[in-house]
């Protein structure tokens, strides 16, 4: 049997997004020319260390940066072809939850301790859809079962503190699906979980994507997570995307020194169990990310890059296509550019 190829339909388009926030020292550009595009049914990952702008990206997409903090947005964010940067709060509330919803970063603290879990899911369904209370209860139970929870009824009746970390994470994922969103954004969904549960949760995301066709944007610092789940990946550093492309391309053929370093940072079992002879020290990226208030004119990674040349410190590279089987493999690195031009 030949399955019909799912036609890709653009859902979210972020074009040249610049986000500035207020700081005591003045306005700071935390996101610089971010371009992302997510089609319906895609699974994409954003990778980067803390402070690289991963969370700012999703908060910009959902427009949840608090008024006191936000200076300005520039560029364009489109949901289903409609610009959302200049729509009002009321319309934005129709997008949050219904079109795009968030899987909370920390399931331990993201459920209200005073209410039963079921009540919290129903609250969202009742608020955002026209379902009756009875239908909402049914839907909540269905979602919990879909999340692979055996005793959905018991979990439904439980308070958050009565559930294990894994169960709570499942509840939060069920909650994010309450109003059948087209895209769920998961911010570090597995960081707070036991390794054994992490895999289950990633499998669950895959299942959701397969069964419901929900697109997933996963934010993580862990390339292991990326490799396991994402079709494409964007690597962020200091508010910019430095490399972007198909996951397999980026992992097996990394073009940016930062991506390369990140991949080298993953310890494997050999490293852990090898004693003495032949044991190399675990790779670490020396130095710290630059202060966004005080950027040099050059590449933002130059100071930590083991390959950096003089030109890297004076000229800011652009995000450019590299020669690769993946037509959308983009890299922001002068050295890669130079190598490519020699090759030609």
């Amino acid at each position: 049997m030949i399955q019909a190829v799912r036609k890709k339909e653009a859902f979210l388009n972020v074009t040249n997004l610049m986000t500035k926030i207020h700081t005591p020292e003045g306005s700071m550009t935390v996101l610089d020319h971010i371009n992302l595009s997510i089609d319906k049914g895609d699974i994409m990952a954003i990778v980067g260390e803390s402070g690289s702008g991963k969370s700012m990206t999703i908060h910009s997409i959902l427009q949840m940066i608090t008024k006191n903090l936000l200076d300005s947005y520039a560029g364009e964010i489109e949901v289903e072809g409609k610009s959302i940067l200049d729509i009002g709060e009321k319309e934005m509330q129709q997008i949050r939850g219904k079109k795009i919803s968030l899987v909370a970063q920390n399931a331990m603290t993201s459920l209200d301790p005073s209410y039963r879990v079921g009540k919290q899911i129903i609250e969202i369904i009742l608020d955002k859809t026209n379902l009756s209370k009875r239908e909402a209860i049914e839907k909540a139970l269905y979602l919990l079962e879909e999340m692979g929870i055996d005793e959905a009824k018991r979990v439904f009746q439980s308070y958050p503190h009565q559930l294990s970390g894994g169960l709570r994470q499942r509840v939060v994922i069920a909650m994010s699906l309450a109003c059948d969103p087209d895209l769920i954004i998961a911010d570090e969904p597995t960081s707070a979980l036991d390794p054994s549960v992490q895999l289950q949760v990633l499998e669950l995301f895959k299942k959701i994507n397969r069964d419901l066709g929900t697109a997933i944007l996963i934010i993580t610092h862990d390339f292991g997570v990326v490799a396991r789940i994402a079709e494409s990946v964007a690597v962020m550093y200091a508010g910019q995307i430095v490399e972007q492309g198909k996951t397999s391309e980026v992992i097996y053929n990394p073009q940016h020194p930062y991506t390369n370093s990140l991949l080298n940072c993953i310890p494997d079992l050999d490293w852990i169990f090898l004693d003495g002879v032949g044991k190399k020290p675990l790779f670490q990226i020396k130095g710290e990310p630059p202060n966004l208030m005080n950027l040099s004119s050059g590449c933002r990674f130059a100071n930590r890059c083991h390959m950096a040349k003089d030109i890297c410190r004076s000229k800011l590279p652009e995000l450019k296509k590299v020669h690769s089987p993946d037509l959308n493999h983009l890299v922001r690195c002068l050295l890669t550019e130079r190598r490519e031009s020699y090759a030609k």
């Binding site: 949840m64 934005m92 949050r96 939850g97 919803s101 909370a104 993201s110 609250e123 939060v172 309450a178």
Partner: peptide, 8 residues
């Protein structure tokens, strides 16, 4: 988190 669902 509840705010992220667009509840009033």
């Amino acid at each position: 988190y509840f705010q992220s669902f667009g509840l009033s």
